[in-house]
Design a binder for these strands. Sequence first.
DNA 1: TATGAATGAGAGTTCATTCAT
DNA 2: TATGAATGAACTCTCATTCAT
Lengths: 223, 223, 223, 223
Amino acid sequence: MPREVRERQMLDAAVAGFARHGYQAASMDDIAEEAGVSKPLVYLYLKSKEDLFTACIRRERAALVEAVRGGTGADRADGDGPRAGGVPGSGGSGAEQQLWRGLCAFFAHTAARPEGWSVLHRAHTQGEPFAREVAGLRAEITELVTLLLGRAAVDAGCDEEFAEREVSGLAHAMVGAAESLAVWANSRTDAVPSPKETAATLMNFCWTGLGQMIKGARWSPHR
Amino acid sequence: MPREVRERQMLDAAVAGFARHGYQAASMDDIAEEAGVSKPLVYLYLKSKEDLFTACIRRERAALVEAVRGGTGADRADGDGPRAGGVPGSGGSGAEQQLWRGLCAFFAHTAARPEGWSVLHRAHTQGEPFAREVAGLRAEITELVTLLLGRAAVDAGCDEEFAEREVSGLAHAMVGAAESLAVWANSRTDAVPSPKETAATLMNFCWTGLGQMIKGARWSPHR
Amino acid sequence: MPREVRERQMLDAAVAGFARHGYQAASMDDIAEEAGVSKPLVYLYLKSKEDLFTACIRRERAALVEAVRGGTGADRADGDGPRAGGVPGSGGSGAEQQLWRGLCAFFAHTAARPEGWSVLHRAHTQGEPFAREVAGLRAEITELVTLLLGRAAVDAGCDEEFAEREVSGLAHAMVGAAESLAVWANSRTDAVPSPKETAATLMNFCWTGLGQMIKGARWSPHR
Amino acid sequence: MPREVRERQMLDAAVAGFARHGYQAASMDDIAEEAGVSKPLVYLYLKSKEDLFTACIRRERAALVEAVRGGTGADRADGDGPRAGGVPGSGGSGAEQQLWRGLCAFFAHTAARPEGWSVLHRAHTQGEPFAREVAGLRAEITELVTLLLGRAAVDAGCDEEFAEREVSGLAHAMVGAAESLAVWANSRTDAVPSPKETAATLMNFCWTGLGQMIKGARWSPHR
DNA sequence: TATGAATGAGAGTTCATTCAT
DNA sequence: TATGAATGAACTCTCATTCAT
């Protein structure tokens, strides 16, 4: 059996095992058995448990990023043609649509591959080498979100400074909210919401606030 | 040395160890050594590794909840007398202020006790008994947030149905965003923001959006 | 080295260790070392200390029962054809001969495998799961003896009632006497008696008494 | 509280604990708790677990020996008055009566103090220092039985050689049979036999055989 | 006399990992 | 390419035993 096929079997088994039991509790014995191969073969192909887990993270990370990027249309020639423009809240900005589609893609992906998502979501807890890897993923996503938010702000005519000073925190908030909603949506037993519904919840939650900020309004405790 | 003191030393050491290495990777040997105590004593007082970790979670959970509850003023006689009222966005609602102060307290607490926060934040990954414990914490906080959001909505004169149908999802988003921001704030090496700044970021992010929702506006992809 | 061979080595080492130190005091380290093997291998093959000890008991029990059964000729087609008959004391009963040969086999076996015998003899002290196992052995042997004694009684023409009422106690006495003699014979440093001598001692001790009982005579304190 | 009283409490608790769980499995913690004292006090009075167990054995051994000796009337001025005389089987020998009464006393004692008996019965399994102690008890009892059997033989007019050559083995058989019957009687849940019944079972079993031997008859396999 | 507090030493068990084939 | 056989190292947990008071 060709190496690539075997290797994918192993990664599948590993993702399943790590998702179910976590990094430490999943044993190489179980993973090898689930993959239908002997343990030495796993070591021959994937070096060590650490490397195996890293490979899982990388694969799932790539899949998630590809899904979200695809959703935003970032890979399509995007600046072409007239953009609908407009501020958040006024409807139809290109960046706004991209964000919306990215969120939809994100929730669709995490719902479609719960085990992969579980691996990613749990990996930052598992010690240094993996935390770094997931931090990379988070940075990648956050950067994308930051870009979109920033572009929306610029579209709306607000100064560059805003993008640099405040958008990053907002992006972090958004990513955290999305993460939380993904877990929540995946774990519901009753009426599990569709990806679009979940994405709409998040857009409802924050988009207007963002629009206000771009206009220069700030929330403050004593008004 | 009296039992209570020793026990607190052990819990301190355990929180530090679990925060640094995670549940599985932290060894009882190391924890005992860090506590300046022999291993058998740890077992004598805290029964088992599982019980020790549970005790850590419970302690930190209680501290966090107390801090946040105290921040919201939930323990003060608060509903009495006429409330200032007001919609989100119009300033000065009782619920809005409570939420604001709760967030400040939350970010202040997580910044003041990074290890305790780390334990709580990582515990849901560490297998069933612990996941349940932090799920309880999350539920407790989410319920509080749901209550505040719902009350704000009612204050603003919107129908009860809103509270029941949508507020829960929003609360989850908010809790997730707060969690993410807490980690992010704690992990920054440059210019770490004050708790109030972080809380303001989150309020800016979502409060206006919430106000719009209460008024009946909904975000939709094709406008 | 093939699994079966290794497994037998381990059982041999375990029987030796348990015989020398008892269940609790024998350490898995020592057993593994004596078997010329690492500890994990012992666990891989035999699961746990408890299972290992149980396996020892079962093996030695089977060997002992087989030896004794073989000695009685119970496996040969023995009841067929006219039996020589005869009461205890009158010589030559089939049951009497079987008992004699069974005793010889028993003492020969316990002398030939002192460690195995020691394990069996000491196991009833070592807690529930093992006590049950040797209780089974004891019951098996006692039942065999009861059968032979009962048959001898019936051969001698005594009523069935005798067999049911009193033979069981006698069988217990006989088994206990045999057990005691086996230990005693094994532990002698001077002139250790041959199995046949030991068996003859026991037959001398009780056979005539049994014959008298069958005839209806009873010992009583005040005659 | 005076030392003697405390010490007896501890021994009582220890006997109970050792009887229930065996030497190794009984913990000093449990014993101290059952005795209603702190652990250091146990160590102050009884030095170590080994010494504690030895003390238990010695106390129970002394009690058992005293009971049996008392039963045989060995401590009474025994040669006085006319003895009934007679061979085993012919009724009424002094030695025979002594043996009978000794057996009754033995079974009565083991039934009355099951925990003490359990300690003694299990101690020979627990490693060297204790095995020696119980071997001493066994030797003491066996010697007594040997003496009685030998005296009976001499009473019956058989030569001295018999006593020296064969009586010892018979005594071992008898002691083993008695031991086995004691355990069996103690462990029965249905109709537990009285000490006298158990003793009668044993006398029935062996006394006539012994009588025959004294007369010079020997059992042999081929008659 | 009596104890609360503490520990050294060692047990059973598991797991990632590697030979030899 | 693939594996049955084997292990070093580490972990959780327990227990007899002793200070300091």
